[in-house]
Design a protein around this nucleic acid. Structure first.
Lengths: 340, 340
DNA sequence: TTGTAAGCGTTATCAT
DNA sequence: ATGATAACGCTTACAA
């Protein structure tokens, strides 16, 4: 049924070797043979068997993404954009992108070793890094090629792409302070996550720099969902000395924060300012529109995709430590006068 | 560096054949040998090379998802949930799920043939089916194993999982009519999509059944985004004889519809009723909360995943035509009295 | 310019 | 109960 090099070879009365070389445009094949082989291959509908090639080349030509079900959800718009862009880069390069889901934290490292050991993939993509990430330690220890979406707080050396959350947070807090806010809160996901760690760091640093007090009870942890934002805001607003501004770790949380404020009969932007991180499409169309720190998701995806390709090919990664700069997008939720 | 069967064989002084059989629990291996082999494999850290196995078995043990960049976005919450559940089923079965992105409609069929021909995948998953879908025609013609997420309007026979949009729409329209609405609009994506076709069909059918006129100019097409819903609502509301209820093809569009209504100074739920399809998390937390036809995304994913696994294994699919029933979720956007 | 032969790591067939 | 041999489809020394 399926056509192999052997079939072509028989047809054109040449050896399999010659056919292989002809198809790969080797110089030491006569033009006539090359043409004949190509024509015949076309005619017979030859499609190379990549599995055989992989066995011979000892390369899987594939990249693995292991997605913790407790980690970034595919439905997270930002992550979806990153993933799309990365998948695009990877398929463009002729490699496969394999996705698998892992449910329990205790199973989170084994799949990496397994997939690489089994030769399913050449390199893996680690997402949602934590400050002290077992996965990274494991991969480094076993010398498994990988690229991380995010840094860690250890002084380990490995390729990563990350966003400068501290800087983004700094410009956001400065913006709020300029508007006169003195009691600013931050609600983020677990501080175990490197991203959240840097958000908190930027938060504290900005307050300090402006000579403002840091109220630790205004730094809270919550789920990275709209619901999580809602709950956190409720708690914060019920405090005596409630904050006049609430920053959320991501835009979905920020939308939840806005809901909570509105449900208390307060006005977002005047009574309480709100801001998020990400700049998902909803940020622009919410009521009021949402001030946010834009994360360059597509660029992240492109870059991480390219790095993964190099890593999978065993090439040196040209620029292995990439820190992308976010951009502050000011909208109505911090400044109602804005009519965008 | 990497341990193969040969290494184990040498170590235990047996043939490669025996080692292979021992590891696969064949009956014709002595208990001692089996134990010895297992122990040694463990000790040496043997990991089977699936590429070699695939070549020998002539199976890729993998499933391909080819995602049109103009089709369902990964960030579509519903699709993300379907995909997660399917990926879970697939990896549980020991198969790989490969994702690739295709950009141009003219390139949308070739990748299927290529991936299967190259033996990268055994079976493919077609999403976002259209009424007359070239992809399905192509796959059937070439006898490529596949499972479709959605039906077509041809009388072709192939395995699919779909949602009964017509029925969902019917109960939604009935609900609105009961509330007294007579001018109901529907804004959906292109009617080329089977899902939208059935939504329209259910829409017309429900009106007919209740003896109401069908105003064709209240059936409009728009992008499946919040923006698309916003624009469609603006157009609809500017008509003389504007509708008193607007149904959107999905929840994101419905949110856009709500924004447009609010921006015109009208109240959602009293002045104009709004409903969507999907029941994404945002539907429950929007202001007002959104009436919607719940799509059982996770179940869809599980089912399609299981079907793909059977298909990839060359097994007969036990129940190849699955039509899942949606559920009407009534919230404030059609009935402001509801205090949920 | 072309061909022969070996090898990638596994499984299957057929002996012993 | 075990082993020798071939085969899966391809690439690549090496030889001619």
């Amino acid at each position: 049924m399926t056509v192999t090099l052997k079939d072509i070879a028989r047809q054109v009365n040449r050896s399999v070797t010659t056919v292989s070389r002809a198809l790969h445009d080797y110089a030491d094949v006569s033009p006539e043979t090359r043409a004949l082989v190509r024509r015949t291959a076309e005619q017979l509908g030859y499609v190379p068997n990549v599995v055989a090639r992989r066995l011979q080349k000892q390369r899987a030509d594939a990249i693995g993404l292991i997605l913790p079900s407790y980690g970034p959800r595919l439905s997270d718009p930002l992550f979806a954009d990153i993933l799309s862009a990365a998948a695009d880069e990877i398929t463009r390069a002729g490699l496969d992108l394999l996705i698998s889901i892992v449910h329990r934290p205790e199973d989170e490292v084994a799949p990496y070793y397994q997939r690489v050991g089994e030769r399913r993939v050449d390199s893996v993509w680690v997402v949602h890094t934590r400050c002290h990430d077992r996965r990274i330690a494991y991969l480094l220890e076993r010398r498994i090629p990988f690229v991380a979406g995010g840094r860690v707080l250890e002084d380990w050396v490995f390729p990563y792409v990350d966003v400068d959350y501290a800087r983004g947070m700094h410009s956001l807090v400065s913006h709020l302070i300029q508007l006169g806010h003195r009691r600013i809160a931050f609600a983020g996901e677990s501080a175990e996550l490197t991203a959240v760690h840097y958000q908190r760091e930027g938060f504290r640093h900005a307050l300090q720099e402006h000579g403002l007090a840091i109220y630790e009870d205004l730094i809270v942890e919550s789920n990275p969902t709209q619901r999580g934002g809602y709950d956190a805001a409720q708690t914060l607003l019920s405090r005596r000395d409630a904050p006049t501004a609430i920053i959320a770790g991501n835009d979905m949380m920020a939308l939840g924060v806005m809901s909570a404020i509105q449900d208390q009969g307060l006005e977002v932007g005047s009574d309480v300012a709100v801001a998020g991180f990400g700049d998902i499409p909803l940020a622009e169309t919410s009521h009021p529109t949402l001030t946010t720190v834009r994360v360059p998701a597509q660029q992240m995806g492109r870059v991480v995709g390219q790095m993964l390709v190099m890593s999978a090919r065993g090439q040196e990664i040209s620029n292995p430590y990439v820190l992308l700069q976010p951009e502050l997008i000011i909208r109505q939720s911090t400044d109602l006068d804005l009519w965008l």
